[in-house]
Amino acid sequence: MFKRPYYIALAIVALLILLVLNLPNGTTARFKTSLGSIFLPLFGITGVTQQATARAGDNLLPKSELIAENNSLRRQNQELRLQVAQAATSSNENERLRQLLGWQKQNRWNVKLARVILRDPANWWRTVQIDLGSRNGLSNKLAVLSPEGFLIGHVSSVSLTKSQVVLIGDDNCKVPAFIENTDRSQGVIIGSGPFDSSFVKLTHLPANAIAKPGQRVVTSELSAIYPKGILIGQIADNARLVESGLITEADVKLAANLSSLEEVWVLFP
């Protein structure tokens, strides 16, 4: 059994924890940044180990395989150069036509590649940490894309060397989106449950919205964070009426694989 001073100590510790819990968000963020520095040596060790493993793997590859891969990449590079040249021509044409019609000029995407270093240890959040921070020019509410260019979430908090990205499906990441069909019904992407991270829900669609399996869902212009037209996923099943028939809802299969993210693009405005 405890003695009286221990009960007092326990009460003091519990009160201190409650005090920390009720601190303002800014102060908590600063505390988290300071405490996070304790993990820096571990991040360093993990990074070095991964690099060493990769280097060991490279050394084990036979030279003939490397030459074949190099040739294949060269061919791919030439094809991509051709595609870039074609895209540049189309882009210039698009810009000229927009100018003629008096439409607003479209901004090009500025992106930075980041490495995913950590996942949220708690099962009830869907976030990752990336190795870019404020010193790399990151700030809150920047869109984050998968290496293939599909939407995966946005930056939710930034420290000097790291940033937290909240992924689609988390309750703190609601994305205004529309279905690419004749109807172009607008809705909101929300999470569909903690177990399968490859599905989300497109909800708040109008009651008469048409959503059929296979139709593409992209970000809408209603968001202040995400640029319009980034692919989120495809409708997975026929839409259903919910909330006493007031709104339509459909399951969306995400285009990006959130469970195996290793690198991501951070999109700058």
Binding site: I17, L35, G36, A122, W125, Q129, V166
Partner: peptide
Amino acid sequence: LMFDTLSVNPLGISALPLL
């Protein structure tokens, strides 16, 4: 505190159940 530092959890929330 260490757990909450790496998580989106409010700081200190994981300490209470452990205590």
